[in-house]
Simulated assay, not measured.
Amino acid sequence: MENRHPKRVEDYTLANLILIFVNLMWIFTAVWSTWGLGPVLILAAILNHLITRLDLHKRRKAPGFDKTEQI
């Protein structure tokens, strides 16, 4: 049995970000056409808040985080 090292994997980050953008756009368009611009703005604000909280949570879990330091 041969012991082969795995080859380097392609980076699909950009493709995934583009797909997320496209999906958000059609969902926002569907919500806008159904209920108007208000719910789209509220949904965008909620998503922004959740992404910010996720970032803060990941920073706190990262090694080297000083609990006395303010973010």
Rank of each mutant, 00 (worst) to 15 (best):
L14W: 07
L14K: 09
L14Q: 11
L14V: 09
A15I: 11
A15M: 13
A15Q: 15
N16D: 11
N16Q: 10
N16H: 08
L17Q: 05
L17A: 11
L17P: 00
I18D: 03
I18G: 02
I18Y: 04
I18Q: 10
L19N: 04
L19T: 04
I20Q: 03
I20D: 05
I20R: 02
I20L: 11
I20V: 09
F21R: 04
N23Q: 05
N23G: 05
L24D: 10
M25C: 10
W26A: 04
W26L: 12
W26P: 00
W26C: 07
I27P: 00
I27K: 02
I27V: 07
F28P: 00
F28D: 07
T29A: 14
T29I: 04
A30L: 13
A30R: 09
V31L: 07
V31P: 00
W32S: 08
S33R: 15
S33E: 15
S33L: 15
S33K: 15
S33T: 13
T34C: 12
T34N: 12
T34F: 11
T34W: 13
W35T: 10
W35L: 15
W35H: 12
W35Q: 14
G36I: 02
G36C: 05
G36D: 01
G36Q: 02
G36P: 01
L37E: 06
L37S: 13
L37I: 14
L37C: 06
G38K: 12
G38Q: 09
P39I: 01
P39Y: 01
P39R: 00
V40L: 09
V40T: 02
V40P: 01
V40F: 05
V40H: 02
V40Q: 03
V40C: 12
V40K: 01
I42M: 08
I42Y: 03
I42S: 03
L43Y: 03
A45S: 14
A45R: 04
A45V: 06
A45D: 08
A45Y: 04
I46T: 02
L47D: 13
L47C: 09
L47T: 07
L47V: 09
L47F: 10
N48T: 12
N48G: 14
N48P: 01
N48L: 14
N48M: 12
H49I: 10
H49Y: 15
H49R: 14
H49V: 06
L50M: 13
L50N: 11
I51N: 05
I51A: 12
I51W: 09
I51K: 04
T52W: 15
T52Y: 15
